[in-house]
Design a protein around this nucleic acid. Structure first.
Length: 597
RNA sequence: GGUUGUGUAGCUCAAUUGGAUAGAGCAUCUGACUACGAAUCAGAAGGUUUAAGGUUCGACUCCUUACACGACCA
C-alpha cells in the first residue's frame, strides 16, 4: 500500500505542477487515510500549500481534485471539505493491492532501513525469587519487540542477563542453610524458584525480628539494620563467595540450579525464549577491567579512600561510584562488563535493554560512561523503558506480600478461559489434550494482550477481572475472529471454493470489501512504526482494528449465498488473507490463534 | 531540594507524531441468533483533553507557568 500512497503523492505533485505551475516534491506532501465519515480513501491536507501556491485551501483542493479525476485513472472521484481533499481510489487499484498482498509469502520481511544486527535483552531475573507480574510485562514486551524487529528483516538475538550474584542471593542461601533442613524441590514438591523465594522471605522475616530485638535493647534503627547478625553473616557469605569458598559455591550452584529449572518451566509456559544467557557472576570481573581501563585513560578518578568514580556533570548527570573502596563491584560495574561481552559476541548496531523506568537514570549513566570510555557501541544502546504495573490496591511491594506471582496468575487466566469455554459448550469434537491447549492459548492470549496493548512507557493498572476478560478489546476477541474465519475456510473447502481462484475478471468492490483491503494493506506500515517506536501496542491496536473491521464485513456481506462465483471466491480469499494478517500480527505479540474455539 | 515521566468519558486505554465533529473497550440503556460461529454486530448516553497563558490557518500533541501523582538523584 505504500506503493499506492507513493503513486498518489506523485500524481498530486504532477497535478500541482499542471494546475498551478509550481513544483512541490511528492515527499513534501502528507496524505493520510480518510476519516470514516467522509467518502474517499486518502486525504491530502491542503493548508500547508496555501503559501506556496498563493490560493485558498478549498480552491487548491478543488483544482487538484478536478485535475486528478480528468487525468489520473487511479482516482475515480473526490470531495473537498474545508482544507481537506478526499480522494476516492479506483476499485482496480484495490484489487491490484489485494493480489499483491495475497501473493506475499508468510513471514516476508518488511524492510525499513533500520538496524540489522540487534540484541534484545529482557527478563533479567534475580535468582532469589520467582517471577511476578512485573516480570511478565517485561518478558512479553521483550519477546514481542524482538519479533517485531525480526519482522523488519533484522537479525535478532534474545538475551537474558541473569542476576545470579550479590547480597540478595546470599540472603536466600543463608536462610536455607539455617532453616532449610536439606529441603529440595523434589521432596517438597515446591518449584525451584519458589523454594528459593520462600527462603528469601524467611530471611527477611528473621532479619526483621533481629532488628526489633536490637531496637528493644536500645540500638538505633540504622545501626540495628547494619549490625543484625543475619545481615553481617550474609555479607560475610558474599565475601566468601567472591573468594570462591567451596561450600558456599556448592550451595550457590545447587540453589541456582533449582531456580533455573523453575524459570525454564515458567518461560516455556508463557512462551518466551532466549538465544543467549549471560550471568552477572561471569561479567562482573570484565566490568572491573573496564573500570581499570577508564582509570588508565584518565576518564575515571580515584578518591582518597580508594573508591573509583566518574564525573558526569558535563553530561548533566552527577558523579557516579563505579567501584567501592573495598574493591567490590556495584551494579554498573557488572553492566559495563556485560555490554562489552555482548558487543564482542554480536557486534550489534542496536542493543535494546528492556528495563523498568525506575532505572532511567542508571541507564543514562551507563550510556554516558561507555561513551566516556570511547566505546563504539555506546550509541547503539537503547533503553526500552517501560512503566511499572500497579494493582488496584496500589503499588506491588514484595515486602508487604502484595506481589502477584507469575505462575499463579497464568494458572488463573487459563482457568478462567476454561470456565468460559466450557460454559459456551464449544469443546465438542476436541480431545482432552486439544481442549487443554486451547484453554492455555486463550488464557495466555488474554493476559499477553492485556499487558501489551498499553503503550510500554506508560505506567499501567492491572485489573485482575479485566485481565481475564474474553470480550471487547481483548486477545480472545481477535482470536475469535480468526477461529470464525477458519470455519469459513473449512466450509469453502467443502464447497470446492478455492482461495487462490483467479480474480482478474472482478472489477468492482463492495464498500466494506474495499475498506477491508485497505486495512490489510496497512500491515507493513504498522510493523515499521512498531519497530521504530519499540511498541508492541501499535501492533496490538492494529490486530484489533482488523478483527473489528472483519466482524463488520462478516455481518454486512454474505459469503456463501452470493451467486456470482468470482465474488464468492474473492470473499473467501479476503477472509483467508485477513486470517493470515491476524495470525502474523498476533504472532508478533507472541500470541497464538486457534482454528476453533 | 534537583532531574524526569505522566495527567484524555464513571473506569481502563487510543488518537496515523501539528489536521476534519478527540475514538475504542468495560460498566449503563436499546435492538439483532430458523442466512457463513452472538466470545459477535447495530445503536443510545457519556468530554471545557488538570488549570491559566502563548505560538498558528489549525493544539490532546509544541513553548511558559502553576497544580496533582509517580520514579530517580541526594
Amino acid at each position: 500500500m505504500q506503493q499506492l500512497e507513493q503513486s498518489i503523492k506523485a500524481a498530486l505533485s504532477t497535478a500541482i505542477q499542471q494546475a498551478f505551475g509550481a513544483s512541490v516534491a511528492p515527499d513534501q506532501l502528507t496524505i493520510q487515510p480518510t476519516r470514516k465519515e467522509f467518502a474517499g480513501s486518502f486525504t491530502l491536507v491542503t493548508f500547508p500549500l496555501t503559501k506556496t501556491l498563493g490560493k485558498g485551501p478549498e480552491q487548491i483542493g478543488q483544482a487538484l481534485g478536478e485535475w486528478l479525476v480528468a487525468n489520473e485513472p487511479k482516482v475515480k472521484g473526490f470531495n473537498v471539505v474545508k482544507g481537506f481533499l478526499n480522494l476516492e481510489i479506483a476499485d482496480a487499484q484495490w484489487l491490484a493491492l489485494f493480489e499483491q498482498l495475497r501473493r506475499q509469502p508468510d513471514g516476508a520481511p518488511v524492510p525499513t532501513g533500520g538496524p540489522q544486527d540487534v540484541v534484545v535483552e529482557y527478563s533479567s531475573p534475580n535468582t532469589n525469587k520467582p517471577l511476578h507480574l512485573g516480570h511478565l510485562r517485561n518478558n512479553f514486551l521483550g519477546y514481542s519487540v524482538a519479533e517485531i524487529l525480526k519482522a523488519t528483516g533484522a537479525t535478532v538475538t534474545k538475551a537474558n542477563l541473569v542476576n545470579d550474584r550479590g547480597i540478595h542471593i546470599c540472603k536466600s542461601m543463608l536462610a536455607y542453610q539455617r532453616f532449610g533442613h536439606g529441603e529440595t524441590p523434589q521432596d517438597s514438591g515446591i518449584k525451584g524458584d519458589h523454594l528459593a523465594g520462600k527462603y528469601y522471605v524467611l530471611f527477611e522475616k528473621h532479619y526483621r525480628e533481629e532488628i526489633k530485638q536490637l531496637e528493644a535493647e536500645g540500638v538505633a534503627t540504622d545501626v540495628a539494620k547494619r549490625t543484625a547478625p543475619l545481615m553481617t553473616d550474609a555479607q560475610q557469605m558474599l565475601q566468601q563467595w567472591e573468594q570462591g569458598e567451596e561450600e558456599v559455591i556448592r550451595l550457590w550452584k545447587q540453589m541456582n540450579g533449582w531456580v533455573y529449572e523453575g524459570f525454564d518451566e515458567t518461560y516455556k509456559n508463557i512462551g518466551v525464549d532466549f538465544d543467549q544467557y549471560y550471568y552477572e557472576s561471569e561479567t562482573y570481573l570484565l566490568g572491573k577491567e573496564r573500570v581499570e581501563e577508564g582509570l588508565q585513560k584518565g576518564v575515571f578518578f580515584k578518591k582518597e579512600d580508594g573508591s573509583v568514580w566518574v564525573d558526569l556533570k558535563e553530561e548533566g548527570l552527577d558523579e557516579k561510584l563505579l567501584l567501592r573502596a573495598d574493591g567490590t563491584s556495584v551494579y554498573i560495574t557488572q553492566d559495563l562488563g556485560t555490554a562489552e561481552l555482548k558487543y564482542q559476541d554480536y557486534h550489534y548496531d542496536l542493543s535494546v535493554y528492556v528495563i523498568a523506568d525506575e532505572q532511567n537514570y542508571h541507564m543514562q549513566v551507563l550510556k554516558a560512561v561507555l561513551h566516556k570510555l570511547g566505546k563504539p557501541y555506546a550509541e547503539a544502546i537503547h533503553h526500552l523503558s517501560y512503566g511499572m504495573v500497579d494493582l488496584p490496591s496500589g503499588k506491588m511491594k514484595s515486602r508487604e506480600g502484595t506481589v502477584v506471582d507469575a505462575d499463579e496468575l497464568v494458572r488463573e487466566v487459563v482457568e478462567a478461559a476454561k470456565a468460559a469455554t466450557l460454559e459456551k459448550g464449544k469443546t465438542e469434537g476436541l480431545t482432552e489434550e486439544q481442549a487443554e491447549q486451547l484453554y492455555h492459548m486463550l488464557g495466555l492470549g488474554a493476559l499477553k494482550y492485556y499487558l501489551l496493548k498499553v503503550d510500554p512507557k506508560k505506567r499501567m493498572l492491572f485489573n485482575p477481572e479485566e485481565s481475564v476478560s474474553l470480550e471487547g478489546h481483548t486477545g480472545p476477541f481477535i482470536q475469535y475472529s480468526h477461529a470464525r474465519i477458519s470455519a469459513i475456510r473449512r466450509k469453502a473447502l467443502e464447497q470446492g471454493v478455492s482461495e487462490s481462484t483467479d480474480l482478474s475478471t472482478l472489477t468492482t468492490l463492495h464498500e466494506t470489501e474495499q475498506e477491508m483491503v485497505q486495512e490489510l494493506g496497512r500491515y507493513a506500515a504498522v510493523v515499521a512504526e512498531a519497530a521504530r517506536n519499540f511498541s508492541p501496542a501499535v501492533v496490538a491496536q492494529y490486530a484489533y482494528d482488523i478483527a473489528k473491521a472483519y466482524n463488520r464485513f462478516y455481518t454486512e456481506v454474505p459469503i456463501f449465498v452470493e451467486s456470482d462465483p468470482v465474488k464468492k471466491a474473492f470473499r473467501v480469499a479476503l477472509s483467508a488473507q485477513t486470517a493470515r494478517t491476524i495470525k502474523a500480527s498476533m504472532g508478533l505479540l507472541g500470541i497464538a490463534v486457534p482454528e476453533r474455539m
